[in-house]
Computed example of a mutant assay.
Amino acid sequence: MSTVSLTTAKAHLNVTETTDDTLIQGKIDAAEAHIEKLLGFTLASGFEGSENVPDDVREAILQLTGHFYENREASLVGIAAEEIPFGVWQLIAAHREYVF
């Protein structure tokens, strides 16, 4: 079960049609998997259930879902891209589990 619902992601993306529902769900799943790798634990186990995931981590998932949905290729042509302040990494860094 996803931490972020399809309905929430579609609202974040401002998508009202159902045409891309499967695609958006895949982007949510990919974003959550990526966040879990960055954090070093699964969302459900690290926060004792997906309903306990903090809002800043949910926001990071939504930002990454939006990025994956809007930028479906591995490169941007003719656009200068840079990381935004308070982006994904800044939102999840405080929750990261460091293991040595």
Rank of each mutant, 00 (worst) to 15 (best):
T3R: 09
T19E: 15
T19A: 11
A11M: 15
N14W: 12
T18L: 10
H34M: 09
G46A: 03
V15R: 10
F47Y: 03
S50D: 15
I61Q: 00
Q90N: 01
T8M: 03
T7G: 00
A74P: 14
E83R: 11
F100R: 07
D21V: 11
G46S: 07
G46N: 04
S50V: 15
Y98I: 01
K10R: 13
E82R: 14
Y69V: 00
I79S: 05
L38A: 07
H12C: 00
K10T: 04
R96Q: 12
I28K: 00
Y98Q: 10
T16S: 07
L39M: 11
F41T: 12
F86N: 15
Y98K: 08
L13S: 13
I84H: 04
D29E: 14
S5D: 00
L64A: 06
V77D: 10
I61V: 03
E83H: 06
Y69I: 01
K27E: 15
R96P: 07
V4D: 00
E32K: 15
E73H: 04
R96I: 12
M1E: 06
F100K: 06
V53D: 06
V4L: 07
A93D: 11
G40F: 01
V77F: 00
V99G: 08
S5M: 00
E70T: 13
I92Y: 07
D56G: 00
V88E: 06
H34A: 12
E36V: 15
L91Y: 01
A31Q: 05
K37R: 09
G66W: 03
A94R: 11
F41I: 03
Q63A: 04
E82T: 14
F47R: 09
A81L: 13
N14P: 03
N14E: 14
I92V: 08
L91K: 14
G49F: 10
L39D: 02
W89I: 09
Y98V: 15
E48A: 14
L6H: 02
D29K: 15
N52K: 08
S75W: 08
L39F: 05
H12D: 10
S75M: 03
E32N: 04
D21I: 13
V99F: 09
A94N: 13
